[in-house]
Each structure stands twice: as C-alpha cells, then as structure tokens.
Amino acid sequence: MKVMIRKTATGHSAYVAKKDLEELIVEMENPALWGGKVTLANGWQLELPAMAADTPLPITVEARKL
C-alpha cells in the first residue's frame, strides 16, 4: 500500500490515503527508519523499503502491512 512518511514535531508519522488514516510511528526496528518494521500508534505494523538514511521527507513509499 502507498504510505506517506513525514517528520513531525514529535517524531515521524505515516499517512495511508486509501484508509484516510494518519498515525504517529511509535516504534522502529531500525533507527534510520528504512528497511524494517515500524509500529503505528493504532497498532498496525508496516514493513518499509530499504532507502538511504538521509532520504528527504515527506516521501510516499510502497509499504507492506504485516
């Protein structure tokens, strides 16, 4: 699914347009965010693609819901 990742004042957030859902990312498998699992505030887990740590945000990526 397409997910937009952006930086907020409190960390990172994910927006899933198909579900009209925006949630804070509360847990990251990798400190650089990319190439691992993230957990959203509502409990969803997404697998993000591997990208460079300095990838500019906001960005829309293809993520997989676990």
Rank of each mutant, 00 (worst) to 15 (best):
T10M: 13
Q45D: 06
Y15I: 10
W44T: 04
G11D: 01
G11P: 00
K18C: 15
I25E: 00
Y15E: 05
K65R: 14
M28G: 03
A32K: 13
T60V: 12
I59M: 10
K37A: 08
P58L: 06
G43Y: 04
M1F: 14
K65M: 15
H12D: 02
T10F: 14
K19I: 15
I5E: 00
D20I: 07
L33V: 06
E22I: 08
G35H: 02
P58Q: 03
A53G: 09
E29T: 09
L46H: 03
K7R: 12
M28F: 11
I25V: 07
P49V: 03
R6H: 08
I5S: 01
R64W: 12
G36T: 04
V16K: 01
L48A: 00
T8I: 09
L48W: 02
V61L: 07
E47L: 14
D54L: 07
E29A: 08
A17K: 10
I5C: 05
I5R: 00
K65P: 11
K19N: 15
A32S: 14
A14N: 02
E23V: 15
L48P: 00
P58V: 04
H12T: 07
V26S: 04
L40W: 03
D54R: 05
K19Q: 15
V3M: 03
L46S: 00
L40Q: 01
A17L: 15
G11T: 03
T8A: 08
L46P: 01
M51A: 04
E23L: 15
T10I: 12
A63W: 04
T8V: 11
T8D: 07
I5V: 08
T55N: 03
K18R: 12
L48Q: 00
L33W: 04
A52D: 13
E29V: 06
M4G: 04
A9V: 10
T10V: 12
P31N: 10
A63K: 01
G11L: 06
W34G: 01
L24E: 14
K7W: 09
L66Y: 11
A17S: 11
N42A: 00
G35E: 04
W34Q: 01
L66R: 07
T55Y: 04
P49Q: 03
T39D: 00
L21W: 13
G36K: 03
A32V: 09
V26D: 01
